[in-house]
Design a protein around this nucleic acid. Structure first.
Lengths: 241, 241
DNA sequence: TAGATTGTTAATCGATTAACAATC
DNA sequence: TAGATTGTTAATCGATTAACAATC
């Protein structure tokens, strides 16, 4: 029987990973926390598997996959075994099978309905972002306060007044919210999203959102990347390195 | 005398941090690697310090700053001591002084010149992104292949044909490149940027760029955030938690 | 069978947390 | 001085790397 330590993920909350042993015991729900580092690598694996599939490649080893992605093969194998044993010893991983497994781990087999609040250029860009669609995210609501934007058709969706957002989210069953509004209104917008029933939010506003614990918030901070580059260029290694 | 272990940062390369002791020894260049985790938190501290400054607050403790940011005070103090001792025991940190210190650590006292390749909505959004300007990043070049976009004025900059990018980068002394092109041309665009003299690239293309080791590349992957949310919503904790 | 590659356990490395002496 | 808060060292925790037995 497997046993996993009960851990707590400080930053992002707790998860439950269900482990049902093959032998016929009553189904056990064992708590197992997968680290964020692992979760963030899964989409990378998945995207590359899609590319491999397009290229007609059926089998890939952790060695080769790691080479393509700049990740060590050990890391890949370790990550995957958090969720099961998907490979074949001496052979490698079946590309389409592994892809399907990752889809189910991440939960992409369902098509998530996404609403975007704040249809400036960033919101506009995200509404048309191809990779989202490829991963199964469907934009089903666009919201803004600006009457010059309201009513416009963006990628097949008409922009709705943000005053109607809560109602629209509820009616359309939108599950994930993206916030691309100014920071000053982000909290208010997030509150309305939650009121409409949303439980997962991706926010581009550079501000900490205060939301009930059952809502999962992930902040995407575009200025960190540039700051990092500034740091590395400023503190670059010496020539003789 | 301080001594630091010589470490190597696997993922991002090595850095040199200069430690010059107060006592009059020949200036030592001691290798010290600051982890990415620390570097990513610095801009958060800095941005909040700016807000505090705007609010007329002169002094802040690690305790209070941590509360505002959702980071433990110990973490903040530890991060800062990677670079020096900026606080006053029994008092806290002087907001503007600490801000200035962080500016110098990140290297934001200079105004970095930024060029953006691929002026779709994302590139457009970034070209007008206020936070970049506030941190001292100046957009000085916009490049695209589409003749419907070339010649347009975006936030005061005229979009230039990408065929002229290398020359423009060199002439204008652009130091940082942002890539918001389709993945299929990202490598080519990156190569041209490097040929023009750029040594730091922020790429939004979901592809691994192959560049000489002296170029620092940071990939911003917008679809990871949504995938994480999908994972957490799929594997959410049970009700009774 | 021999070679290849996984899955898993153990070792290492690094980052965060805790504790507390120093000192404003 | 007493209270507060930093800077630093030690303890803990967690993630990555290494090694290798299992097995295709």
């Amino acid at each position: 029987m497997f046993m996993y330590a009960v851990n707590f993920n400080r930053t992002e909350g707790r998860l439950i990973y269900k482990l049902c042993e093959a032998r016929k015991e009553p189904i056990m729900r064992q708590k197992k926390v997968i680290s964020d580092a692992v979760i963030e690598r899964l989409p990378l694996y998945y995207r590359d598997l899609l590319l491999l599939q397009d290229a007609g490649i059926d089998i890939i080893s952790s060695e080769k996959l790691g080479e393509r992605l700049g990740i060590t093969p050990e890391q890949i194998r370790k990550d995957l075994t958090c969720f099961g044993a998907f490979g074949k010893k001496g052979v490698g991983y079946y590309v389409s099978e592994l892809g399907q497994q990752i889809v189910e781990i991440i939960g992409l087999q369902q098509h998530w309905k996404v609403g975007i609040a704040g249809i400036g250029h960033l919101g506009w860009a995200l509404a048309n972002y191809k990779t989202f669609g490829r991963l199964g995210f469907r934009t089903e609501g666009l919201f803004d306060v600006d009457h010059r934007i309201i009513g416009q058709n963006v990628g097949g969706i008409v922009v709705t007044p943000i005053s109607e957002m809560e109602e629209t989210i509820r009616r359309a069953g939108i599950q994930i919210g993206i916030i691309t509004t100014p920071a000053s209104v982000a909290q208010q917008v997030a509150d309305q999203m939650v009121a409409g029933g949303i439980r997962g939010i991706l926010s581009f506003a550079p501000i900490r959102l205060n939301l009930p614990p059952h809502v999962y918030v992930f902040r995407e901070d575009l200025s960190i990347g540039l700051s990092r580059i500034s740091y590395y260029l400023t503190n670059k290694p010496e020539q003789d390195e």
